[in-house]
Design a protein around this nucleic acid. Structure first.
Length: 442
DNA sequence: CCAATGCCTATGCCTTTCAC
DNA sequence: GTGAAAGGCATAGGCATTGG
């Protein structure tokens, strides 16, 4: 793949009028027969005609393709019209930078590029950029700009800037790291200012990781958080004959050699599916955040939702989500949900409720097991503190501290030892009498 | 393959709250 | 009044993961 990128670098150089560099000892460029007169590539008609698009520039080096997905069409389990984000969606829960007052929903533009490689150097270019947005009827419109040759980049960048100028919010998947910086270097390369500079940008990857990214300990085969994985898990959408990402650069280089537009069809479809799924995944995430834990299909989502509310300081909603997760989930969900619920209770001064949640974590463990998992260690430590300092039941406090001491190492071990010594001292001097008014009367 | 983002964990600091 | 504990908060470094 690396030498393909090197070849493309040669194309760009020749395009600029400079002679091709002498073929080095390694990769000769002779087999690359790119024809600058892009409109004449292939045997019948222009690239734009054969792709069913329209030329953006006079030479047809950039091709524009429009596609409409009707509102009542289905994408996996969801209908297209349901994928439109609107002002009722609490987008600030996922990204506080997108303020709700900013009428961000006016024109949300979904954005995804296909490039000749991941490395993003000067020899790599985005040969396909796809934009999608909703019209007033709830249909999803996709506009793609395709480079029939590198000479089309300038007109592509101008046309793309016109789309972005209309946008109120840009939405991408991993675009904060990849797509947007990539395009910004291209605009810089052509000495124009980037239209993304003052455009609010929402990257769906971090929110998706928060909602669906927790590695599922119960299922080692769980799929990760790529857009195609989310598509299957969240939308129930399965692609047929998809072009895998790693194959995309090679296909484009082959197109440049042969002018065969059929090689590109699968990439166009891949890009459109990415945009549609991005819209669907985003609006589903927003919908879940708005509707709350009762709308979740999986307890893991309820747990994640709790963390999302907690980050946004919506602590009551967070507690509600954790309680739902505890009620619906298996032990692997219950444990973290109980721990987080316990911390919320403790922070709010509801110490008895916190203690009950910590105790519930310990009750999930089989009696036979001596070793403590991290959650159980956390619970035992919190209960030792609770019973020593709040409930004043020194005997019980010592019980938890002892269980903790057997299961800790290093630094935590030292603290536990100190706790045990303090408890022993207090018990000897008769501080135990005060330990009557505790949890026992519940 | 590469860069970069953001989560998790450990660690130290600071303030508050008690017990003596 | 003094000292110890607890717990919130900030920071830093490690780790995994995503894009074509």
């Amino acid at each position: 793949m690396r030498d393909l990128t090197a070849r493309l670098r040669d194309i760009v150089r020749r395009e600029g009028g400079a002679p091709a560099p002498a073929a080095g000892a390694t990769a000769p460029v002779r087999e690359l027969t790119y024809v600058p007169d892009v409109a004449a590539i292939g045997d019948e008609g222009s690239v734009a005609e054969r792709m069913g698009g329209t030329p953006v520039d006079a030479a047809g080096a950039c091709v524009c393709l429009d596609r409409r997905y009707d509102a009542d069409r289905s994408h996996g389990r969801v209908r297209v019209e349901r994928c439109r984000p609107d002002a009722t969606h609490p987008i600030d829960l996922f990204d506080a930078r997108v303020r709700r007052a900013d009428d961000w929903e006016r024109r949300v533009v979904f954005f995804d590029i296909e490039t000749t490689g991941l490395s993003g150097g000067a020899g790599t270019l985005a040969f396909l950029v796809g934009c999608g947005w909703f019209d007033d009827d709830g249909a999803f419109l996709v506009r793609q700009f395709f480079l029939a040759g590198p000479a089309g980049e300038q007109p592509m960048l101008e046309a793309l800037a016109r789309v972005f100028d209309e946008a109120s919010l840009l939405v991408t998947f991993n675009g904060r790291t990849f797509d947007v910086p990539f395009m910004e270097t291209r605009w810089a390369f052509h000495r124009s200012s980037a239209p993304t500079d003052d455009l609010p940008h929402f990257d769906m990857l971090p929110p998706a990781r928060r909602l669906w990214g927790q590695r599922d300990l119960a299922r080692p085969d769980s799929e990760g958080c790529s857009l195609t994985a989310l598509e299957r898990r969240v939308l129930g959408f399965h692609r047929h004959d998809d072009v895998p990402g790693f194959e995309i650069p090679a296909r484009y280089f082959q197109f440049l050699r042969t002018g065969e537009t059929r090689l590109i069809d699968g990439i166009l479809e891949h890009n459109r599916h990415d945009l549609l799924s991005l819209a669907a995944v985003m609006s589903h995430a927003l919908w879940l955040a708005r509707e709350g834990p009762a709308a979740c299909r999986e307890p893991a989502e309820q747990l994640a939702l709790g963390q999302i509310y907690e980050r946004a300081s919506r602590l009551d909603e967070a507690a509600g989500a954790y309680e739902t997760a505890i009620a619906m989930g298996d032990a692997d969900i219950k444990r973290p949900a109980l721990a987080r619920l316990a911390r919320l209770h403790r922070r709010a001064g509801r110490y008895d409720e916190a203690a009950r949640a910590w105790q519930a974590i310990l009750d999930l463990a089989p009696r036979s097991r001596r070793t403590l998992t991290p959650f159980e260690r956390q619970a035992a430590e919190a209960l030792a503190i609770h019973h020593e300092h709040r409930a004043r039941d020194l005997e019980r406090a010592r019980g938890y501290a002892e269980a903790l001491g057997a299961a800790t190492m290093g630094r935590a071990r030292v603290e536990t030892e100190r706790r045990l010594q303090r408890l022993a001292r207090k018990l000897k001097t008769g501080g135990a009498q005060t330990g009557r008014l505790t949890l026992e009367d519940e």
